[in-house]
């Protein structure tokens, strides 16, 4: 399953504490996201990707020795339900 998201300019992102507040400009909706959801949205800026590719992109920035593509896919499905990403 490949996922896509709006470009970063479509979102206003403010880190509040461990949670990040996101204003999604296309919908006008506000979201509070926990890691790694904001990072996954940022990783989609390079273009649509499946979970293993997203994991590879995140691994360039973060130390993720035990990361599981299944967990990434689950987070992406949550972002799809929230309206911040879609299946490409």
């Amino acid at each position: 399953m490949r996922y896509a998201a709006d470009p970063p300019a479509a979102r206003l992102t403010i880190a509040l504490d461990e949670l990040v507040a996101i204003y999604h400009r296309p919908s006008g909706a506000t979201h509070l996201l926990a890691p790694p959801a904001p990072e996954l949205l940022d990783a989609l800026a390079e273009g649509p990707a499946d979970a293993p590719t997203l994991l590879a992109r995140l691994s360039r920035q973060f130390d993720l020795p035990d990361a599981d593509p299944q967990a990434i896919a689950a987070r992406m499905e949550e972002l799809v339900i929230a309206g911040l990403a879609w299946r490409a």
């Binding site: 509040l16 504490d17 949670l19 509070l32």
Partner: peptide, 20 residues
């Protein structure tokens, strides 16, 4: 926490949604 305060105040605001 700031995130909890943010959530409580979105509920305590009467015009948060309409201000975008």
């Amino acid at each position: 926490a700031a995130s909890e305060t943010f959530m409580l105040l979105t509920q305590a605001s009467t015009n948060y949604v309409s201000l975008g």
